[in-house]
């Protein structure tokens, strides 16, 4: 459910932003901690290029859709642990927006998972306000931003893999499907287990095969076993 940032001069309804303040970067903040949301909004209010159009406690497709943001800033720390579902809801509600993840975790694995699920930025929360604004502008301008401390870990892992397919390229949902493939389940059984349609499962399987550069379920199972997910 959307809550307005009452008292903050930059918060105005999305429709009036469209008509009155063309050219500004419209930002939606998704933050479970009310006070942190206000602190973030305060940072954006210091920069004339931004306008915070909505403040959500959790990804809300209708709220995001109504706000028509250019940028979605989401603090993952207060959200459910299913990164794919959380970011998937952001993408569904604001398909044209750039999604910037805030996290307290200096983790290249978490960063990779976020990037695989639609994020364009992974920002660790010990960032300064000025650097945060710079990062968001970078992303709004069409580039990506990752915290350089975790980017190093990602580059090292990719270097070690030397072009081999990496199971970390899979989204959380794809990893879940891979685990069930390795357990010997057919697509129909997986669809029942995960409450998905069989067609959706087929799509997941197809993406898994593509990402891992394989063509058979037995190869998928081998990958899953090697990665320790079964």
């Amino acid at each position: 459910m959307a809550t307005r940032l009452d008292g903050l001069p930059t918060y105005v309804a999305a429709e009036s932003v469209t008509s009155m303040r063309e050219g500004l970067l419209r930002v939606v903040i998704i933050e479970s901690q009310v006070l942190f949301a206000k602190a973030l909004a305060g940072i954006f209010s210091e920069d004339a290029e931004f306008v915070v159009v909505s403040d959500l406690r959790a990804p809300d497709e209708s709220g995001l859709s109504a706000a028509k943001p250019h940028v979605v800033v989401i603090d993952l720390d207060g959200q459910p642990t299913d990164v794919a579902a959380t970011l998937g809801a952001c993408v569904a509600g604001a398909p044209d927006a750039r999604i910037c993840v805030l996290s307290m975790h200096l983790s290249s694995e978490m960063m990779q998972r976020c990037l695989n699920n639609g994020a364009e930025a992974y920002i660790v929360k010990d960032i300064s306000p000025s650097e945060l604004l710079r990062a968001i502008k970078t992303v709004a301008g069409g580039q990506s931003y990752v915290d350089p401390r975790v980017a190093g870990g990602l580059l090292r892992r990719r270097s070690l893999n030397a072009g081999k397919p990496d199971i970390m390229e899979l989204s959380a949902r794809e990893a879940e499907v891979l685990k069930l493939i390795a357990e010997g389940l057919a697509n129909k059984q997986i669809s029942v287990r995960l409450h998905l349609s069989e067609k959706t499962v087929k799509n997941h399987v197809s993406r898994i095969f593509s990402k891992l550069n394989i063509s058979a379920r037995t190869q998928a199972a081998v990958h899953a076993i090697r990665a320790g997910i079964v």
């Binding site: 006070l35 942190f36 206000k38 602190a39 973030l40 305060g42 940072i43 929360k125 010990d126 960032i127 300064s128 306000p129 945060l132």
Partner: peptide
């Protein structure tokens, strides 16, 4: 407060 982004808000408050 160890997150610099939060310091201005809490200082002001």
């Amino acid at each position: 407060e160890r997150q610099p982004a939060l310091v201005p808000f809490f200082r002001d408050t």
